[in-house]
Design a protein around this nucleic acid. Sequence first.
DNA 1: CAGCAGGGGGCGT
DNA 2: CGCCCCCTGCTGT
Length: 385
Amino acid sequence: MEDGLLSLKWNNHKITFFEILRVLREKANYTDATIAVEGKFYPVHKLVMSTCSEYFSEIFERTPCKSPVIVLKDVRSQDMDALLDYMYLGEVNVNQNDLASLLKTAECLRIKGLAVPDEDPTKFRKGQSDDRRESPPPKRRRHEDSSSQPLSQRPVSPTISASSKTTPPSRTPPLQHQTSSLPVSQSQDSVHDSIVDPPPMVKVEMEEADDPDDGYSRRDNSYDGGSVNEGDGDFGTELSKSEHDPDNYGSGSFPGPSIQPGGDLPWDEGDSSSFPPEGFSGDLPAGQQPQGVFSQLVGPSAGVANTWTGGIGMLAGLRWDRTCCWCGRTFMRPAELTRHMRSHTGEKPFACHLCPWRGSQTWHLKNHLARVHFVAVKSGEAPSQ
DNA sequence: CAGCAGGGGGCGT
DNA sequence: CGCCCCCTGCTGT
């Protein structure tokens, strides 16, 4: 050590820091991301979100967009309110009745201290190879898939896989912590070891930054707005890694944001005229009303609660209903996206009555029957399900 | 390498 | 919704 080394300590640093953070949040100053939940929009700071959640951290890492809009499906806005309070303030008061739901959401979002064991920041290690099994894995396009594990054996999103077979998806959170005391803090370790549900369906919406016809309905990776790595065309590879590694089923497979990179929040610059903020609660400060149409999240099957479509919602370009949120592929018609989503969810509604085979398309069943069982199916005949 | 089956997507209706 | 095309992986020769 050198001589004369002085330690300058800001006594009230933490308090001041949090206070400023609180104000910044309140005024939405310097926010660089937006969380959308149930039509409510929460301007947030990536820094804070990343700090409190590895899940968000990964999302932002993989989102080249400067100001992504992250739409969380199946998250209650009141939970998000509470979680944001928790993340910004370090604590939050919730009703006991809301606790289970809150914890469930926290688990899904891997909120530190709530769902993920908090770690001593002074002992911070870069070990990011922890389990990320809870995220819905996107399915790669086949030519990118070298392992070619049958889809039915893939660890698809638990919600989805559970729903496509026997049991309907349950929205009931695992109530491990119903008796936790309030305010919520440091409540667990056990959950981390148990099966963690996948994060809620997350969608990063980007503003329409370029020609809406870009990459439209191309055969291969129809988007040409760029890849995760912006130009190296490695988007598929990114996804591949996620799927190859069972421990990497995380937001690592996060779709979308790369598709239409660039751009700030669409409402950054006035003109909110085109936005019908259905259910929009006006959480954003004045002048930050989003424009464009928000997705109603059409699922490919009503029976798959967590299934959703409409990934790269073109806030202005209305492409949300035709772009896969998981792989970024854009289709000519919403129905094609719905059908495509089955390739991600593993949903195979069309069962062969002669063997255990199931297919994702009626035509496949027909094909199967014809080619395997030499059975011709008359047009209009209802496929067994 | 050829054939088969499964599966994804385009497109007509 | 239905049909079709095409790609891919597997398997037998």
